[in-house]
Nucleic acid binder design. Structure first.
Ligand code: MN
Ligand code: MN
Ligand code: ZN
Ligand code: ZN
Lengths: 138, 138
DNA sequence: TTTTGTTATGTAATCATTATAATTTTATAT
DNA sequence: ATATAAAATTATAATGATTACATAACAAAA
């Protein structure tokens, strides 16, 4: 995606398209691995030597506010960020830590005991061993 | 539950039933609110003035190892602990933070794109506003 | 009662994230 | 264009949950 359309994507969400924000957005779109803030920082820092980690966190929070990214919380020790806007669940491999997307039918999940609750968001994640790690027998 | 049966519950899982462990187990069984380590510490500390927070964490990790409790990770900032062994999902209220159990049919959730994955665990949680908070309009 | 292993305790360390203040950049007004 | 105001970035400090570590207390075995 070219820089202009990246900027447009941000402007559409009323986010000022700073160079840092564009580069972070670009990284997220090109690396759909549910990266940590640290991974994002390290990757983008290679292109912007003056980049601060604060900016990464600030930007991610701005993106989340605008629903451009969402936090994927499975591990508990560090948040991972997801730019995939489609409704989907996740699978985390207990061996390698990778998080995979899974397009299961989350909407179908229903709970009679939550009839009086206002449900705004449904989250699903599985855990286990991914195909690659199964093959490597670890 | 009387102390003896609490001790038996631990022995059955090959956990030495120290006074601290029994009291922590008792608290978890009597307060099914998915408490934080801090909540557990404060409550049990009232009964055992010498209790250390390290012991709470150690004990919770021992209990988790034995599958007596499981970690419920929704917020990301602090882990909450659940002694409910039945298969169930959760609802966290965005207003008061309370976590409710919900007996939805998690097993029914299936993902064709995970056929080559070894699925060991399925997790579901919803977010929204609980009945009490809806009534209080906040 | 030694000896040995296990558990508990207190304190220090870790580490992801947030808060704060100063600086730089961008937009607006004159 | 210049001054002024607002927004974003940066560097650093603070926060806070959890873990690591060393020591003390306890329990079991010999
Ligand atoms: Mn995803
Ligand atoms: Mn529960
Ligand atoms: Zn794997
Ligand atoms: Zn509530």
């Amino acid at each position: 995606m070219n820089p202009t359309s990246l900027a447009d994507k941000l402007i559409k969400q009323h986010i000022r398209p700073s160079y840092q924000r564009i580069k972070i957005l670009e990284y997220l779109l090109d690396n759909r691995i549910h990266p940590t803030a640290d991974q994002i920082f390290n990757a983008v820092h290679a292109h912007i030597p003056t980049l601060s980690k604060s900016t990464v966190y600030n930007t991610l929070n701005v993106f989340m506010e605008a629903n451009l990214v969402r936090a994927v919380i499975i591990d508990g020790n560090e948040v991972r960020y997801d730019i995939n806007g489609e409704e989907h669940g996740h699978f985390q491999c207990e061996s390698c830590g990778r998080i995979y997307d899974s397009y299961m039918n989350i909407d179908a999940l229903n709970a009679d005991d939550l009839n009086d609750f206002a449900i705004k968001d449904k989250n699903v994640y599985f855990k286990g061993i991914c195909p690659q790690c199964r093959q490597n027998r670890n």
